[in-house]
Computed example of a mutant assay.
Amino acid sequence: MRTTTPSKPIDVLLVEDNPGDVRLVEEAFEMVTNEIRLHSVSDGTEALEFLSDGREDDTTPFPDLLLLDLDVPRTHGFEVLEEVRDDPALVTLPVIVLTNSTDETDIGESYDLCANAYLTKPDSQEEFVSLARAVEEFWVQTAKLPPVPAV
């Protein structure tokens, strides 16, 4: 199992097409912890490529956690989630859906596709900081993350 130490930060992949939301998430995590190294891509296709590259290339970090917006271009968030859960090398990757939708159908489908959590995007910077703190407290300090898949 992977353990967190100051010399080994947690790599988080943020899949988000809104540059303003990317910046809010980046700033929130910077305010909360130095144990999370945030990487971002702007669409689902880039997310799947990043995950593939992380398995095949030692220079691309493999994420320990995926923050996934559902409404992203090219490959929709549900498709990304489905591909992650169908891939034996990715199936244990924790996925937190972080999206604007409060639609019960989206929530249900996310859990049907085995998302680990469903969070609605906050409305303010303070709420983003609170969300980042909660993610850090649970996913970095409390939860035991699965090992990085072998290539």
Score class of each variant (00 low, 15 high):
residue 2 R to K: 09
residue 3 T to Y: 14
residue 3 T to I: 11
residue 7 S to E: 15
residue 10 I to P: 00
residue 10 I to H: 06
residue 11 D to N: 14
residue 11 D to L: 05
residue 12 V to Y: 03
residue 12 V to S: 02
residue 12 V to K: 08
residue 12 V to P: 03
residue 13 L to Y: 05
residue 13 L to K: 09
residue 16 E to Q: 08
residue 17 D to L: 14
residue 17 D to G: 15
residue 19 P to R: 09
residue 20 G to F: 11
residue 21 D to A: 00
residue 21 D to I: 00
residue 24 L to K: 09
residue 25 V to P: 08
residue 25 V to W: 11
residue 28 A to G: 14
residue 28 A to D: 05
residue 30 E to I: 12
residue 31 M to V: 10
residue 34 N to I: 00
residue 35 E to N: 13
residue 37 R to E: 15
residue 41 V to R: 05
residue 41 V to A: 03
residue 44 G to V: 06
residue 46 E to W: 10
residue 46 E to H: 15
residue 49 E to D: 11
residue 51 L to P: 01
residue 53 D to S: 13
residue 55 R to P: 01
residue 55 R to S: 10
residue 58 D to Y: 05
residue 59 T to A: 10
residue 60 T to Y: 02
residue 61 P to M: 04
residue 61 P to F: 02
residue 62 F to L: 15
residue 64 D to A: 07
residue 66 L to C: 15
residue 66 L to G: 11
residue 67 L to R: 06
residue 68 L to M: 06
residue 69 D to R: 04
residue 69 D to I: 11
residue 69 D to V: 13
residue 69 D to Y: 08
residue 70 L to A: 06
residue 70 L to F: 10
residue 73 P to I: 13
residue 73 P to N: 03
residue 74 R to H: 12
residue 77 G to D: 01
residue 80 V to Q: 09
residue 81 L to M: 12
residue 82 E to I: 00
residue 83 E to R: 13
residue 83 E to S: 08
residue 85 R to N: 02
residue 86 D to E: 12
residue 88 P to C: 03
residue 88 P to H: 01
residue 89 A to V: 09
residue 90 L to Q: 04
residue 94 P to D: 07
residue 96 I to N: 00
residue 98 L to A: 02
residue 99 T to N: 00
residue 99 T to S: 11
residue 101 S to E: 06
residue 102 T to E: 05
residue 102 T to D: 03
residue 103 D to T: 07
residue 104 E to W: 03
residue 106 D to C: 05
residue 106 D to A: 01
residue 107 I to N: 00
residue 109 E to Y: 03
residue 110 S to I: 00
residue 111 Y to N: 01
residue 111 Y to T: 02
residue 112 D to H: 13
residue 112 D to Y: 03
residue 113 L to P: 01
residue 113 L to M: 07
residue 114 C to F: 12
residue 114 C to L: 06
residue 115 A to I: 04
residue 115 A to H: 07
residue 115 A to N: 04
residue 116 N to S: 09
residue 119 L to R: 05
residue 121 K to Q: 06
residue 124 S to L: 11
residue 126 E to L: 12
residue 128 F to R: 04
residue 128 F to M: 11
residue 128 F to S: 08
residue 128 F to H: 08
residue 128 F to N: 13
residue 130 S to L: 10
residue 131 L to G: 08
residue 132 A to G: 15
residue 132 A to F: 01
residue 133 R to T: 01
residue 138 F to N: 05
residue 138 F to M: 04
residue 140 V to R: 09
residue 141 Q to W: 07
residue 143 A to N: 12
residue 143 A to Q: 11
residue 146 P to H: 08
residue 149 P to M: 07
residue 149 P to V: 09
